[in-house]
Design a protein around this nucleic acid. Structure first.
Length: 615
RNA sequence: GCCGAUGUAGCUCAAUGGUAGAGCAACUGUUUUGUAAACAGUAGGUUACGGGUUCAAUUCCUGUCAUCGGCUCCA
């Protein structure tokens, strides 16, 4: 059984919970106005407009009232009502948002959160409905298509989670309602399991682990969304990037590494189309002479200038550039959080400049890099075909025909690589071209958008990028954008939580901890020499020289999630051997071995980027 | 940016209209330790920052900054 099927089965129950909650709130808060109350993953919500505004402290009260509604076991009674009658009914009840929905139904034949989505439903402007669905449970009657469970007694186990703001119809120009969220499951056990999962997720929260493990910090003086990477965090970033570049080197003739400044004249972005499209997100700088520069929000226009710096022969194609570098985007303050959304974003960026007939080969090669990388970190990938929305072609650069062509080519590779196993992402394209997006599933089942391969006919057009072909003609080339990790910041937020901080040896900032059993000069001296031997061999090793017992040192190393701990005492000094202690879950315990064998084993494990011990 | 909550020692948290306390971490001393927490002591705070009310503000009000949960956005 897939979790999706399960979610489907739970729908009527969760939807009914939303109605039960509305029933309770109607009793508690006379004059309350209801927005919409749909089902979401794990639960439900209802948007409401009530004075005074709700706070988290109101939730227990609502929850208690809901229990009364459930106990009363009102049947959910379905009926229909003529559209105009319904408008009259909700007008009497002063349910202004419902009236808004009904008027929408009257005009457009459907209600959707956003007007622009209507075109996707295949409904003409003149589609009309005469009747609307009505559900009643006891004292509460709602505009609703259903389905519901039989009665309010059959809504399973639930818990109200939080209350937050939400714009009516998801439009920030509209009034902001309050959204009350709850989770709902068939049984108390499932509910408790879900709540337990949330606790586990919180334990592996990258913000918490990042601080505990000293991977990155934020400073109020530096600012919001601008993470500072510590030596330990930087080790992980470097290791990841090295791996990506190692995989990239296997592609055709490999990639040329390039280096670009982090600012540019606005002229570059005026030509690329970024200036208009992303003006709000650009950090702008005014020089003392009055010129306007911008921090780069992406690297492709710069890279395109390198490509365009001299005539290119078809013999040189494809030309591939790579650069792992930061870009800067002025994200709205309210959307920043941890590493998942930042203003200084490190991209493991790459651009392939190629001929149309080379697209397929290039994409397949990139796809293999993506597969190799995510296989190694142990994440399953799902694919999404992010294409443009023809209704919004104005938001994109290029013509409809160009887009059709690009998407057809991308789709061909997609079909061959993934068959039908991909999600359709209508309207998810970048503004310059369609994408193949990869979603990775982490250790506790959450999905995150990570890698992306993008086809771009737009910027080659804008910058007039060409090569000279066999016939001596100027031939328009194509750009492929591809980041494997995407944003290193976001990727690390995912990876830290995926591993719950217990990084495999190749990524672990500290691979070996040495724990001398006492603080005598002789033993400390021996331990530091051993440390030097390990670091000279390329291992990341540290000594715990604190004045503590071995038990405490073992515990501390365990909490720090160090893969290997070596206890060093008389025995080791005499034999010259070590007895590695493995981090929990990292592999089978091994016995005594020579220092050389230990070094060889750890080095091999790191070189192979193995998830488990290779001792 | 919008709605709401929060901000006390490095970390996790307590307390109060009369200028704050614990555990862990740090440091010092004792101990010289053999596989997940030795013992004792010391130090550490303009209670995020600014303004206001008050005899008195960390506490109440307010502004700024930051964090968190959502909304909106996301090349």
């Amino acid at each position: 059984m897939s979790s999706k099927d399960n979610e489907q089965q739970l729908m009527p129950m969760r939807h009914s919970l939303a109605h039960v909650m509305a029933t309770a709130m109607q009793e508690l808060y006379p004059g309350i106005k209801f927005g919409i109350g749909p089902v979401v993953e794990h639960g439900f919500y209802y948007d409401v407009d009530v004075q005074p505004r709700l706070t988290e402290e109101d939730l227990p009260k609502i929850q208690a009232k809901m229990k009364e509604v459930i106990k009363a076991n009102y049947p959910f009674e379905s009926s229909t009502m003529g559209l105009d009658k319904a408008i009259g009914y909700f007008t009497d009840k002063e349910q202004t948002y419902k009236i808004d929905l009904l008027n929408d139904l009257k005009v457009h034949g459907t209600t959707v959160a956003k007007d622009i989505d209507r075109s996707q439903l295949g409904l003409g402007e003149d589609a009309k409905v005469d009747e609307v669905g009505i559900y009643t449970d006891g004292p509460f009657t709602d505009l609703c298509r259903g389905p519901h469970v039989e009665s309010t007694g059959k809504v399973g186990a639930f818990k109200l989670m939080r209350v937050s703001g939400a714009y009516w119809r998801g439009d920030e120009k509209n009034a902001q309602l309050q959204r009350v969220y709850g989770v709902g499951f068939t049984t108390k056990e499932e509910l408790n399991a879900h709540l337990e999962m949330l606790i586990q997720a919180e334990k592996r929260d990258h913000r918490k682990l990042g601080k505990e493990m000293d991977l990155f910090v934020f400073s109020d003086l530096v600012g919001q969304g601008l993470p500072l990477w510590t030596p330990r965090g930087t080790v992980i970033r470097e290791e990841l990037n090295n791996y990506v570049q190692e995989l990239r080197a296997t592609v055709g003739g490999g990639y040329g590494q390039v280096t670009i400044p982090h600012i540019t004249k606005k002229d570059l972005y005026e030509k690329s189309g970024h200036w208009d499209k992303f003006s709000n997100e650009l950090f702008k700088i005014k020089t003392r002479e009055g010129h306007i520069l911008a921090m780069k929000p992406m690297n492709c226009p710069h890279h395109a200038q390198i490509f365009d710096s001299r005539p290119r022969s078809y013999r040189d194609m494809p030309i591939r550039y790579r650069e792992t570098t930061m870009v800067y985007r002025d994200e709205q303050s309210g959307e920043l959080g941890g590493l998942a959304r930042v203003r200084s974003i490190t991209q493991d960026d790459a651009h392939v400049f190629c001929r149309t007939n080379q697209i397929e080969t290039e994409i397949v090669q990139l796809w293999n890099v993506v597969k190799g990388f995510y296989g190694t970190v142990g994440m399953d990938l799902k694919v999404r075909f992010s294409r443009h929305d023809p209704a919004k072609i104005k938001d994109h650069i290029g013509t409809e025909a160009t887009w059709q062509r690009a998407e057809a080519q991308l789709l061909e590779v997609l079909k061959r690589e993934a068959g039908d196993d991909y999600a359709d992402g209508l309207g998810e394209a970048a503004f310059y071209g369609p994408k193949i997006d990869f979603m990775a599933r982490d250790a506790i089942g959450r999905e995150h958008q990570v890698a992306t391969i993008q086809l771009d006919f737009g910027q080659p057009e804008g910058f007039d990028l060409v090569c000279t072909n066999e016939s001596g003609e100027r031939e328009r080339i194509v750009m492929i954008h591809c980041a494997i990790m995407g944003s290193l910041e976001r990727f690390l937020s995912v990876l830290i939580e995926h591993y719950a901080g217990a990084f495999p040896t190749w990524l672990a900032p500290e691979q070996v901890r040495l724990a001398p059993v006492n603080g005598t000069d002789e033993l400390l001296d021996f331990t530091y020499k051993l440390r030097d031997q390990l670091t000279a061999a390329g291992l990341r090793a540290e000594v715990d020289a604190s004045n503590e017992g071995v038990g405490k040192k073992i515990r501390t190393a365990g909490l720090a999630k160090v893969p290997y701990t070596l206890v060093i005492g008389e025995k080791e000094m005499e034999s010259g051997n070590v007895t590695p202690r493995l981090r929990q879950g990292h592999g089978e315990d091994v016995g005594e071995m020579s220092v050389e064998a230990f070094i060889t084993g750890v080095a091999r494990e790191a070189a192979e980027r193995s998830a488990n011990s290779k001792l």
